[in-house]
Design a protein around this nucleic acid. Structure first.
Ligand code: MN
Ligand code: MN
Ligand code: ZN
Ligand code: ZN
Lengths: 148, 148
DNA sequence: TTCCTTTTTTAAAATGATTTTCATTTTGAA
DNA sequence: TTCAAAATGAAAATCATTTTAAAAAAGGAA
């Protein structure tokens, strides 16, 4: 955890940004909720618990900065808010998501799975892929069990 | 074109909705811009050219209705507005997109390409896939030619 | 240290997309 | 033709996000 913060600090410095107390508090919240898909407001409320003086605009600015540095990925599941997801350290691409249309749960797929598809797209559409967003909408294992 | 409208009309009727003049005007604009990715405001301005009395709220309501009936797909490319994309008639899944990070162009991939990936996801994650969203971010063929 | 410039933060106001409200109009079945 | 339900338009409301402006913090140079 601490070493992860250290590396993020260096990452910021290498782009001449500072790891201010507010930024650190925000990053800690993200690290403590790796599995979640928090909105800016969600992050704000969590950061506020330990650093009550922080402002919402600062959280927005920090999330924007972390997105720019590819420390987090910004994603939109169609519910009107952007959500922020810590990127696995060293991951070349964003991971995938399973959104359940019954219960709203969001599960993650860390495996790449797209290597072949990307090879085809790069070749056939002559498109140089830098990143991707892949989300499946359907019924999660939990909701399937509930079905009659 | 006319037959496509007829089928959409039947589709609405089968869910006991009417194809009002405003809805028809909206659908026509979408049909005339199949390749584009129009925002609600874009649609509104285009509909207004032929039906100046229409209201923006009606366009929003119509797009929501068409989305619910899976006649259009709502998509978000991260620029703060939702965009609406006519679904290919009879298509089981939404098509894919190539977003150029240089010029902003959005190109389409109509081929499925995900059959194998979906088979793996259904089996390994026990997730019953109903639809998907796949977008690649990268450099389009036009911008590659322009490089250095 | 002290001074100075730059960066960052905060709270409040502004913005912009989307939704809701409500009075009015249109629709289609009886 | 009549009438209840559905749909519309204009305006207001809502909500996420961004901008503004003044104050605070950071950190390098003297
Ligand atoms: Mn995730
Ligand atoms: Mn498209
Ligand atoms: Zn579920
Ligand atoms: Zn391009």
């Amino acid at each position: 955890m601490e070493s992860r913060i250290e590396r993020i600090k260096k990452h910021l410095h290498s782009s001449s940004y500072k790891l201010t107390p507010q930024r650190e508090a925000t990053v800690r919240v993200l690290l403590e909720h790796e599995e979640d898909h928090l909105s800016a407001e969600d992050v704000y409320l969590l950061v506020k618990e330990k650093s009550p003086e922080i402002g919402l605009a600062t959280v927005y600015r920090t999330l924007e900065l972390l997105t720019e540095l590819k420390i987090v990925d910004k994603i939109n599941f169609g519910d009107g808010v952007s959500r922020y997801d810590l990127r696995q350290e060293g991951a070349a691409h964003f991971h995938h998501h399973l959104v359940c249309i019954e219960c709203g749960a969001v599960d993650e797929i860390q495996e790449d799975l797209l290597e072949d598809v990307e090879a085809i797209v790069e070749k056939r559409w002559n498109f140089q892929i830098k990143d991707h967003r892949l989300t499946f909408h359907g019924i999660c294992y939990r909701c399937q069990d509930k079905e009659e």
